[in-house]
Amino acid sequence: MTPHPYQLYAVPFTEADQARLVGFSCGDALWSRHVSEWLLGSDVLDSMKRGTRVWLFETAEKEVVGFGSLGTSRWNWPPPDGSKATIALIPMLGIAERFHGQPPDPEWRYSRQIMGHLIAETQELARVGREAKAGGPEWLVLMVHRDNARAIQFYEQCGFELIPGVERRNNHVVMKLWIGE
């Protein structure tokens, strides 16, 4: 069976990929430039050192449509509780500008294939954690610039909800998605 023409493939990212990614750009808005910069500079490597997995998402012709990342973090419940929770998070995600909104068919929309992949991988993490009784993540969170309306809309379409009353550094808001049972 020939694969669907819009099928994306997940290719684990390595440092060596940076050379062929020169010119990869998610756009020129402030919140897009740092996304490209993250992937092309040292930030992605730092994040991987902390256990983040990063994929490039490519077409069958090996054209890079975008990238996504998935990590976990241990957050403390505020005092007096003080115990820790494992949180799954998407440190960074981006699609090359010319593929934004592509393809028009929502069934094959690249953005949704990519998010579908990240969510499936998170669910797998959660499942493994549950089975090992190791307290795997139950929430998947991400951070987005509050003026990045397109991304916020996209995340909401995927099921993410804004955590009200939270503002992280540099005008970032935080969104959450339940990936537990």
Binding site: H34, W75, W77, M92, W139, H145, V166
Partner: peptide, 28 residues
Amino acid sequence: DVADMLDAVASFQQDDYTMTAAEASALA
């Protein structure tokens, strides 16, 4: 600003972050 944004991203992934009351109540 881009440099600041990247710092914000790095700090988002930091372990041992203590949730704010709003985050804690949303995640609880």
